[in-house]
Nucleic acid binder design. Structure first.
Lengths: 243, 243
DNA sequence: CGTCGATGCGCACACTGTACGCAGCACGGA
DNA sequence: TCCGTGCTGCGTACAGTGTGCGCATCGACG
């Protein structure tokens, strides 16, 4: 009864478009890619797996995205949209800068793969969110009255990038171990102290670190490092503000 | 005349060990891996290509190195050995810190792939060179009389890591383009200015940057950013030194 | 009805890291 | 002199990667 020569692909095989499927779109692809990156890190993202998550073949994605690198670029820009900066008329410049830095940091820690990408690609992207981020940052620091706002921005940003990538890399390592941060530290500490044997000053420093690590929440320790360093930078910048 | 049944592998095929070949060793592997990383970046290093460069098969390397990640770990530690730090009895703490920071920076810029690796793996390694680096850094800052030397170290290191990874990533992007830095900037600038359209403050900032970029050596601009930021950090730290 | 552009997909290619088992060697003991 | 015994290198193989290419399908428009 088969009217056509084609063996299987009949009318029945070709089911009509199911309505729940929002189809493949650049936004959906980027969104899902970010979800995968957040969940399992930068190595876990492959075009095939991403396609599978979207009920699509791997190569279908290439209709909407030129290359995997471009996809990463889009993901980075998307994430930059999450950073929120204080308005440019903030009265207290230190508080405002601290809030901005904190927002950058927490965004990076929410998406630790950012650190890997920034290490290879940098901030040379020109996506809309990154541009708007830069604009608001420029407006903010200009409103503070810095004579060379872009230098002040660069300095703060450099510090914040440095601490964010360090922390993100650390948290990635911890995550790969499958343990909690505290447990991982407890397991690492003996090895570190052994490696520090023969290094007098370092050994003492590690011993002190081990003591406080045992008594304090690791996240709290990281916070305090962040705020200490940021205060140093802000103190240095304060000297460059008029009056 | 063939006395054995084996077809080809005769005494003649099995040539005796050639003397020039230094054999495969962990040191040689790491050295060659670093050379490849320096030359062509982190994506260009594959076990097969590395093996080929050593006149060896890919899997032979695994006799000396457990995994590619471990190889990278060894490479990172090796490179940390290149950073040289001032002696702990330096009189001028600002000059000494600046020299140390500079050394870290130039080492990173000589091995830009470091930025990618630090972004994924961080400084959690415990290699001998890294330990010795930490030790000398700790001794240095302790000798300056900082009440909390490790916090001062972290702050400086954070800034230096931030600027080094940013610069390294940038230079990697430039290198991939195959152009000189100046040419790449000249080509990028119009796109950046177009992307900044609609962002008033940013557009102005870009215009100023474009003007100086056209008149100044890019490396000099990067240097000045580095020194400006470092001075800010040092000023901030100075407030925390006794007297 | 015919055509066309956009979309998704299967296949294929070159390449990756690395597990496994075999072949040759140096060496120590019988 | 011969036989293990361990160490080193290699060939093969497997599962997985990014992506170029050409075909099938489909909605829209003439």
């Amino acid at each position: 009864m088969a009217s056509k020569a084609h063996p299987i692909p009949s009318v029945w095989a070709r089911r009509q478009r199911e309505p729940e499927q929002p189809a493949l779109s650049r936004e959906a692809i980027v969104r899902e890619a970010i979800a995968m990156l957040d969940a399992d890190g930068v190595d876990a993202l492959s075009m095939r797996k991403l396609g599978a998550r979207l009920n699509a073949g791997a190569t279908s994605l290439y209709r909407h995205v030129a290359t995997k690198d471009e996809l990463m670029e889009l993901a980075v820009d998307e994430v930059f949209g999450e950073i929120d900066l204080p308005a440019a008329d903030s009265a207290d410049w230190r508080a405002a800068t601290t809030r901005a830095a904190q927002s950058f940091r927490t965004t990076t820690l929410n998406h630790p793969w950012l650190a890997s990408v920034l290490g290879t690609a940098g901030l040379a992207y020109l996506g809309p969110n990154l541009m708007s981020f830069s604009e608001r940052l420029a407006a903010l620091f200009t409103s503070f009255g810095f004579p060379e706002p872009s230098r002040a921005i660069d300095t703060v940003l450099t510090f914040v990038i440095g601490i964010s990538t360090s922390e993100a890399a650390w948290l990635t390592t911890v995550a790969r171990s499958g343990e909690t941060e505290a447990a991982f530290i407890a397991r690492l500490m003996p090895a570190a102290q052994e490696a520090a044997a023969g290094h007098a000053v370092l050994a003492e420093s590690y011993a002190a670190a081990a003591a406080t690590a045992a008594a304090t929440d690791p996240a709290e320790i990281r916070d305090s490092k962040f705020f200490y360093g940021l205060e140093v930078v802000l103190d240095g910048l304060a000297l460059r503000l008029p009056h």
